[in-house]
Design a protein around this nucleic acid. Structure first.
Lengths: 195, 195
DNA sequence: GTTAGCATGTAAGGAGTTACATGATTTT
DNA sequence: AAAATCATGTAACTCCTTACATGCTAAC
C-alpha cells in the first residue's frame, strides 16, 4: 500500500502524546483509533518504536505497571521534548505524502491535539488532493467513455460519486472550523455556534 | 520466481487478453482502466512482465508496430494458452487477498471477460468483506464512543457511511446480474440510484 | 495442566518506488 | 538543434508482512 511509515510514526507519536503506553497496548489503541485500515503487525510496530527511540524522540522506561498483568515485563514509551517538537512539526507538515488517504486519516484522528489553523490547513490540503483526483477521473471518463466497457464505467462512476461526497464532507468540516464551532456529533458539550 | 502482487498480474493479463500490447502502452492503459489508484511504475511493470514470460504465461514478440513511432524497438506481449488458463483461474479465485480494494477493482473492471456466475461470486465476496469491516467498525464505535474525541468519531462515522453506501451499490449490482440484465450500458438513461 | 491472552522481539522475504541509464524519433 | 515523448530496463532502497522464537500470567 502506500507509504505508511510517515503515517505510522505520526500515529504512534500522537497516541503516546496522549498517554504513554507499551507496545502491545499501543497497537490495539492504534487499530481502534485508526479503525480504518486493518491491522498493524508487530514486525512494523516494534522496529518503528526502536527507530524513534534511537532518534531521541521517545524514551523507553522499564515498567512494572498497573495493568491487568502487573508483573509482566513491559516497556513504556513516552515522548521526549524533541518528540513533542517533531510531532508538532509533522502534524502540520505539507510535504509529499501529506494528503494520502492513510496520512490524512491519522492526522484527522489527531485533530484534538492541533490548532484550528492547522486543522483548516489539513482539511483544505486534503480537499485539493481529492479535487485533483476528481479532475483526473473526469478527464479520463469523458475522453474514453465509448472505449470502456460498462462495468469499468460503473466502477469509475461509483468512485467519482464517492469522491464528490467526500469533498462535500470536507467542505462542511472546513466551514465548521472557520465558524469556530466544534464538530459536535454526539458530544454532550456546548454547541457554541457563533456569538 | 518473483510472485508479484496478484492485482497487478491480473490486470496485466486482463488487458493483454483484450489486446496484445507493449509495456509503455500497457501502462497507460492500466492507469486509465484502473483510474482509481495513481500510477504504476516501470520498476514494477517490466519485472512483472518478465516474470510472467518466465512462467510461460506471456510471449514476447519483437515488433515493429503500427503505432505512432513505427520503427521504435518495442516488445509486444501476448497471452499464451497457459496465460489464458491462468487468467481464468485467477479471476475466479477466492484465495486470500481476493476481496481487497485493489484486487476487487481490477476484477470488476475485467467483468466484461467473465461469466455471470463469476461476477456474482466476486460481488458477493466483496460485499461480505465490506460487511465484516462494517461490523468491526460498529463494534469499535459502540464500545468506545465516549473515549474517542469528536474528530475521530466524525471520521469513523464518515467511513461507516461510505461503507454502507458501497454495500448498497453492490446489492444493486448483484440484483442486476441475477436478473440477467446488463448494467445499463453506455446509455444516457437515468442513473437514479436512490437518494 | 492446558489453553488463551499478554508481551516483546527477529529473520526472511515480498512488493513496490525512486532514481538512474540508454537510446530512438518526432515536434518545435 | 533542442525539447518532448516514446520505449525499455536495472539497482538501490524502503516499508511492511509472515512466520518464527520466547516466556509470563490467568482462566478453564
Amino acid at each position: 500500500m502506500a507509504k505508511r511509515s510517515a503515517a505510522l510514526e505520526l500515529a504512534i507519536l500522537g497516541v503516546l502524546a496522549q498517554t504513554p503506553q507499551h507496545g502491545y497496548e499501543l497497537r490495539k489503541r492504534l487499530i481502534s483509533v485508526l479503525g480504518l485500515f486493518s491491522t498493524i503487525s508487530y514486525g512494523a510496530l516494534y522496529p518503528t518504536l526502536k527507530s524513534l527511540v534511537e532518534r531521541g524522540l521517545l524514551v523507553e522506561q522499564d515498567d512494572i505497571g498497573t495493568g491487568k498483568y502487573p508483573k509482566r515485563t513491559r516497556i513504556t514509551y513516552a515522548l521526549t521534548d524533541a518528540g513533542v517538537a517533531y510531532f508538532n512539526e509533522m502534524v502540520a507538515d505539507s510535504g509529499p505524502g501529506a494528503w494520502d488517504d492513510d496520512t490524512f486519516a491519522v492526522r484527522m484522528s489527531l485533530f484534538g491535539q492541533t490548532e484550528v489553523n492547522t486543522r483548516i490547513h489539513i482539511l483544505q490540503g486534503r480537499r485539493s488532493r481529492l479535487e485533483d483526483r476528481l479532475a483526473n477521473l473526469q478527464t479520463n471518463l469523458s475522453k474514453g467513455r465509448e472505449r470502456l466497457d460498462s462495468y469499468t464505467l460503473e466502477l469509475q462512476q461509483h468512485g467519482l460519486d464517492a469522491l464528490e461526497r467526500e469533498v462535500r464532507w470536507l467542505n462542511e468540516l472546513i466551514s465548521r472550523e472557520q465558524a469556530g464551532g466544534a464538530p459536535t456529533k454526539g458530544s454532550p458539550e456546548n454547541v457554541p455556534g457563533k456569538k
